[in-house]
Simulated assay, not measured.
Amino acid sequence: MIVIPAVDVLDHKVVQLVGGELGSQKITLPDIISTAMSWVERGAPYLHLVDLDGAFGKGNNIKIFKKVIKECGVPVEIGGGIRSESLVDELVSAGADRIIVGTKAIKEPEWLSKISDSHPGKIMAGMDTKNGALVVNGWQGASELTVENMFDIIKDLPLAGVLNTNVSVEGQMKGIDEEQSKRFISKCPHMVISSGGVTAESDCRMLSRFGAGGAVVGLALYTEKIRPWEWDRPWYAD
Rank of each mutant, 00 (worst) to 15 (best):
Arg183Phe: 08
Val192His: 05
Asp203Cys: 07
Met173Pro: 02
Lys174Leu: 07
Gln172Cys: 11
Thr199Val: 00
Lys187Gln: 14
Thr199Met: 03
Asn166His: 02
Ile185Pro: 08
Met191Leu: 15
Asn166Met: 04
Ile176Phe: 04
Gly175Met: 02
Ile193Cys: 13
Ser181Cys: 14
Pro189Ile: 00
Gln180Glu: 15
Phe184Leu: 05
Ile193Ala: 11
Cys204Leu: 13
Ser168His: 08
Ala200Gln: 13
Ser195Thr: 09
Thr199Gln: 01
Ala200Asp: 13
Gly196Cys: 11
Val198Leu: 07
Lys174Ala: 13
Val198Arg: 01
Gly197Pro: 01
Cys188Ile: 08
Glu179Trp: 10
Asn164Glu: 04
Lys187Arg: 13
Ser181Pro: 01
Gly171Ile: 11
Glu179Met: 14
Val198Met: 09
Ser195His: 08
Gly171Met: 10
Gly175Cys: 03
Val198Tyr: 07
Met173Tyr: 03
Glu179Ile: 13
Ser186Cys: 08
Glu178Phe: 12
Asn164Asp: 10
Glu179Val: 12
Ile193Gly: 03
Asn166Ile: 03
Ser202Ala: 15
Glu201Gln: 15
Asn166Trp: 03
Glu178Met: 11
Pro189Tyr: 10
Gly197Lys: 01
His190Ala: 08
Ser194Met: 14
Pro189Ala: 08
Ser181Tyr: 14
His190Gln: 04
Cys188Ser: 10
Glu179Lys: 14
Ala200Arg: 15
Asn164Gly: 02
Val192Ser: 09
Thr165Ile: 02
Ser194Thr: 14
Pro189Asp: 01
Ser202Cys: 12
Ser202Gly: 06
Ile185Lys: 07
Val167Asp: 02
Glu201Lys: 15
Asp203Val: 06
Asn164Cys: 15
Thr199Glu: 07
Ser168Cys: 11
Ile176Asn: 05
Gly171Gln: 00
Val167Cys: 04
Ile176Ala: 06
Lys187Tyr: 05
Val169Asp: 00
Lys182Leu: 12
Val167Phe: 04
Arg183Ser: 14
Gln172Ser: 09
Glu179Tyr: 12
Cys188Gln: 06
Cys204Gly: 13
Ser195Lys: 02
Cys188Trp: 09
Asn166Glu: 09
Gly171Thr: 05
Ser195Glu: 12
Cys204Pro: 12
Val169His: 03
Gln172Asp: 11
Asn164Pro: 01
Pro189Glu: 06
Ile176Tyr: 00
Val167Asn: 00
Ser186Pro: 00
Arg183Pro: 01
